[in-house]
């Protein structure tokens, strides 16, 4: 569990106003959007995308075919941010 992942968990709980759940409850590999995972919806995805762009200055292209893959779980978002910031 990296520092970035820990930050991201807290960020998601905060920006989505998730109630009844603490950042620690979310496993970094837990699916964010599938029904057996957090079951977030498309409005939530938009919100996460915007706040990640704000917070980390990374660019997200809505035409990027890999976008869904990046947003699979906390770990994949963190990896994507690391890669883009490294560039």
């Amino acid at each position: 569990m990296t520092e970035l992942e820990t930050e991201l968990r807290a960020l998601i709980v905060e920006v989505l106003n998730l109630e009844d759940v603490t950042p620690e409850d979310i496993d970094p590999e837990e699916d964010l959007f599938s029904e057996d995972g957090l079951a977030l919806d498309s409005i939530d995805a938009l919100e996460i995308g915007v706040s990640i762009q704000k917070q980390y200055g990374v660019k997200l292209d809505s035409k990027d075919e890999k976008l869904a893959e990046y947003f699979k779980n906390i770990r994949s978002i963190a990896r994507m941010i690391d890669e883009r910031k490294g560039k």
């Binding site: 998730l18 109630e19 009844d20 409850d25 029904e35 957090l38 079951a39 919806d41």
Partner: peptide, 15 residues
Amino acid sequence: LGSFRFSRQLAASLA
């Protein structure tokens, strides 16, 4: 499930 995941499953099954 706890209330958070319960609410999420409920929402998902009503999608």
